[in-house]
Write a protein that binds this DNA or RNA. Sequence first.
DNA 1: ATGGCTATGTAGCATAGA
Length: 273
Amino acid sequence: MKLATWNVNSLKVRLPHVLDWIERHRPDALCLQETKIEDANFPVSAFTDAGYHAVFTGQKTYNGVAIIARTPPQAVVIGIPDFDDPQKRVISASIEGMRLVCAYVPNGETVESAKYVYKLDWLARFRHWLEREAQSHPALAVLGDYNIAPEDRDVYDPVAWAGKVLCSEPERSAFRGLVALGLDDAFRRFDQPPRSWSWWDYRMNMFRRKLGLRIDHILLSAPLAERCGACTIDASARAAERPSDHAPVCCELDWPTATAAAATVSPVASEES
DNA sequence: ATGGCTATGTAGCATAGA
C-alpha cells in the first residue's frame, strides 16, 4: 500500500507530470494540493483512463485539493466541518479501511501578515477537527503541504530562517500539536539523508544548489505508523521540465488492500462468496 | 542583491506562493 502527497502548483500545467508519476509509482492514493482549478474543469477522464478515481474541491487561481485513488474514495468530506472557509484547502475520504485527509495549510506570507494570523487560526481549527477524526478513525493518515518546517534540520539555513514564516515557533508548536494527537511524522521514522527537502524556491537556482525546506508531510496514526516500512521524498520530480516547486512525499504501508486480496483469492473461493 | 521565478487572470501588471 502506497500513499503519497504532492503540491503540484497548478494541475493544469502539471497534469502530464502527475500522470507520468502515478504510472511509474502506482500509488494507492495520491493527495494533491494547489490544483488551482475549478471543479467543472478538473481532468477527471485523464485519471479514469489511468485507472484512478478522483475526488476534489477547487477554485480558480488559488488553493484546491484532490485525492486520486485506485479504489473509489468513500464518505468524501469537503473542508473542515463547521469552519466556513471559502479557501479550498481540505478534502478527506476513506479507502481500504483507512481515513485520508488531504490538506493545504495556509502559507502565512510573513509573521507580520494578517495571513499569518489566518494560518495559526486555521491550524487551531484543523487540530480541533483532527482530534475528533482521530477518535472516529483509528487508521488515519494526514497528508499534505503543511507549510511548516518542523525542525531546524528541515531548513537549509536555519539561522537565516529563524523566526521566519514556515519556521516560526508558533507554527512549529502547531505542528507538534498535530503530532500530539498521536500522529507520527512518517518521514522521521526512518534514517534519512541529511538535508532532505520537499520544496525548493524557483528563484536563485535553489534546487540546483540543493537549498530547500521540508514542508510537505505525511502524518500517520499509530495503527498505520507501525505498519509503515518506508517514507521518501522523490526529489527527482523537481528536476523535470517545468516542475512544481514541491516534490512528492511517499510512504509504504504493510496494509491489506482490496486489489491485493482479490489477487490472492482463489477462483473457487470467490465463487463461494 | 528585499531581488530573484512561476502561475493565474487578463491583456498591463498585480497577486500569491514559500
